[in-house]
Simulated assay, not measured.
Amino acid sequence: MAVTDIFCRSDRFEDSVVTVGGWRIRVRVRRGTGVPLVLCNGIGASLEVLDPLVAALDPCTTVIRFDVPGTGGSPASPVPYGLPALACGLGRLLTKIGCGVVDVLGLSWGGALAQQFALQNPRRCRRLVLVATGTGALMVPGHPRVLAKMLTPRRFTDTGYAAAIAGDLYGGTARRGGADIARIFRIQNHSGSRIGYIHQLLAGATWSSLPVLPFIRQQTLIVAGTDDPIIPVLNARIMDALLPHATVQVHAGGHVDILTRAVELAPTVTSFLTER
């Protein structure tokens, strides 16, 4: 099984569909130089949601992003999956598009996948960036009222609803009004499927990195906001204590400020990835 012979080039971006392990995964690559950066997205979000971050990163960096099964342009998996299986699939995907050693950035739910990928691929993953994320089922949780709003993907399909709940759900800049959040979600080309969202919820609920963090040896940057209702900042402190080579960057923002304040926060990521 190989990359579908359909590539749509726009500026420096290449879109493709890669088949791995029975999954058809939509991939977008911005070609550049150096060690490629793989972006693992938050739950239910398509790769377009990461546009503000990609635009703010070093323009010379190769950036790879993808839709997990059941989100964006990737069809849902016929059966539930675990994060170890998805991390294995990500490795096979990278091989098929010709990537060897990579850096990995995970946002929120994608941070769980990034941790699992780093654990399973100690020589292939050079550096790790964990943004607004925690250790899965064993972590300091957000308020139940906040987490209840994440049980459905409605915010991705109803921008009015997304704007209305943005402040309570995401904190940070979203408290000034949800227009920025709604605008980011509106650029999704595909809203994904309900079953795909459920599979992501199950994968996260049955996984934890807490017992294995000492075995993740990569240099790691942890980016956390002090006003994150979903992932309280205490989780970053716990991860910093358990990861052997971690640095914490705390900002006075919320869960998705890496997108709404990308111009301010992305240089920290770039500096970490390019430092000797």
Rank of each mutant, 00 (worst) to 15 (best):
L39H: 07
L39G: 05
C40Y: 06
C40H: 05
N41E: 15
G42S: 13
I43R: 14
G44L: 02
A45W: 14
L47H: 09
L47C: 01
P52E: 05
P52N: 03
L53Y: 07
V54M: 04
L57Y: 04
D58I: 01
P59A: 03
P59Y: 01
C60T: 11
T62Q: 02
T62H: 03
V63C: 01
V63A: 01
V63N: 02
V63L: 00
I64C: 08
F66V: 00
F66N: 01
F66Y: 15
V68E: 15
V68N: 09
G70I: 08
G73L: 08
P75S: 00
P75V: 07
A76S: 14
A76Q: 10
P78Y: 05
V79S: 14
G82R: 11
P84D: 14
P84V: 09
P84R: 03
A85Y: 08
L86C: 04
A87I: 07
C88H: 13
G89T: 12
L90K: 04
G91D: 12
R92W: 13
K96F: 05
G98T: 08
G98H: 07
C99M: 11
G100M: 01
G100D: 11
V101A: 09
L105Q: 05
G106S: 00
S108C: 13
S108K: 00
S108N: 06
W109K: 01
W109A: 08
G110M: 02
G110C: 02
A112G: 11
A112M: 14
A112C: 12
A114Q: 01
A114W: 08
Q115C: 04
F117W: 12
F117P: 08
A118Y: 07
A118D: 08
L119H: 15
N121T: 11
R123D: 15
R126F: 00
R126K: 08
V131K: 03
A132D: 11
T133F: 07
G134E: 10
A137G: 11
L138T: 11
L138W: 12
L138G: 07
L138M: 14
V140C: 12
V140M: 12
G142L: 06
H143T: 10
P144F: 12
R145V: 13
R145N: 13
A148N: 11
A148P: 05
M150F: 10
L151W: 12
